[in-house]
Design a protein around this nucleic acid. Structure first.
Length: 381
DNA sequence: TAGGCCATCTGGTCCT
DNA sequence: AGGACCAGATGGCCTA
């Protein structure tokens, strides 16, 4: 496939403006150095979306990208057509070249292996200007649709960022890390539900961090206000500190646990997910742990598990503090903006403070569904 | 400067 | 036929 060398010229004027703004402004430190545009919206580093993330999301639509409100695009098709009138015609030349090549091929095909002219029907007409214009237009429209689709995809991804732990407007997770963390999050919550017991914080964090990059691991730990290098839990699940690396902690669970049944202690990779075993060993769920890692497949449930398990505010360490994104080195606990979400944080499942250790009573399945409905109801406002 | 991340363009494929 | 989806290519921006 030949991408036109000057494809950058095709970039919309709006995108060029944003790129210019990106050059003019001093970006904030990354983990995805974001900048804010003139409207105060947070933009990702590099090429930035030409759309605000706060636009209505259409995640429920199977093809949300297709339904992204195009009128909100800084460059609608109409605008793009206007831009096309101004910009260089390099991309247009490509279309024309395409036609030329095609015509050339047809001429070659007019001869058989002996070089004699083939007998054919009426020769195809060389595309006229009208057809070429139509092709150009179709290509431009397809480009606009593709942009819109990708914007919708990114909007959905942004909404996903908001429901996984460690959401920060100023330090966004990358796309791939967002997906990984979301997968781990779902896995960890599923494990917790399946276990029906108060989960072990360390195991939860370990599951969350599986497969994540070191910066993201640090970010998750930072969200939990834990030192990634030091967090451990004691026998009661309280956080204690040691000098072990997070990977030591991850792959070698410390010591024995009162909840650890015989034969389930150990170290090494095979024990990487046994943190969950420490608190969830009902025989009924035993087969479930045959896949003790999010990497080895998703857990299956006999019943239908409500997919959006949004335990908003599941992590709450300083629930009295208002969220303060973008300040300091900590990434505030995820608070949801919708009414009622803050209250959820007060019922958080995980707390590190010794006096408030795991106060949240996690009900299993049928017991919790009602609460889940409430949670999800407010969450998916 | 290399590498990561991202937006965009583009052509092919599949589906309606 | 047209739109959605996908993946490759490209180039910009940023950080280490």
């Amino acid at each position: 496939m030949d991408v036109p060398r000057d494809a950058e010229h095709v970039v919309s004027a709006a995108t060029r403006r944003q790129r210019q703004m990106a050059r003019e402004k001093t970006p904030q430190r990354r983990f995805g150095a974001q900048i804010r545009d003139h409207a105060g919206r947070t933009l990702t580093r590099g090429n930035m979306l030409t759309l605000p993330f706060e636009e209505p999301l259409i995640m429920c639509e199977p093809r949300f990208g297709a339904n992204y409100p195009r009128e909100n695009l800084p460059e609608s098709l109409e605008q793009e057509r206007q831009h096309n009138a101004d910009r260089s015609n390099s991309d247009m030349r490509d279309v024309e070249d395409d036609f030329s090549e095609r015509d050339e091929d047809e001429r070659e095909d007019d001869q058989d292996e002996n070089g004699l002219p083939k007998k054919r029907g009426p020769r195809k007409k060389k595309p006229g200007k009208e057809q070429m214009d139509r092709a150009k237009m179709r290509r431009q429209e397809a480009n606009a649709r593709e942009r819109s689709r990708m914007h919708g995809l990114n909007a959905a991804l942004e909404s996903l960022r908001k429901v996984v732990p460690c959401y920060s407007k100023t330090q966004k997770l990358s796309k791939i890390e967002t997906l990984r963390l979301a997968k781990n999050y779902i896995w960890a919550l599923s494990e917790t539900l399946s276990a029906g017991k108060r989960p072990d914080l360390l195991a939860f964090v370990q599951t969350l961090c599986k497969g994540l990059s070191q910066p993201t691991t640090n970010l998750v730990a930072g969200c939990l206000q834990l030192n990634a290098r030091n967090f451990l839990t004691d026998h009661n699940g309280e956080v204690m500190f040691s000098g072990r690396s997070p990977y030591d902690a991850m792959y070698s669970y410390p010591g024995s646990d009162v909840n650890t049944p015989p034969g389930h202690s150990g170290s090494g990779l095979e024990n990487s997910a046994k943190g969950f075993r420490h608190y969830s060993l009902g025989s009924a769920y035993e087969p479930y742990y045959e896949n003790p890692s999010p990497e080895s497949g998703s857990p299956h449930f006999d019943g239908q598990l409500s997919p959006p398990m949004n335990f908003s505010g599941i992590f709450s360490l300083k629930h009295d503090d208002p969220p303060d994104y973008g300040k300091g080195g900590h990434y505030g606990m995820r608070y949801c903006g919708a009414p009622g979400r803050t209250a959820l944080a007060h019922n958080s499942m995980y707390r590190v403070s010794p006096e408030a250790r795991f106060p949240y009573d996690l009900h299993v399945r049928s017991q919790s569904f009602q609460a889940q409905g409430e949670v999800n109801g407010s969450f998916h406002n």
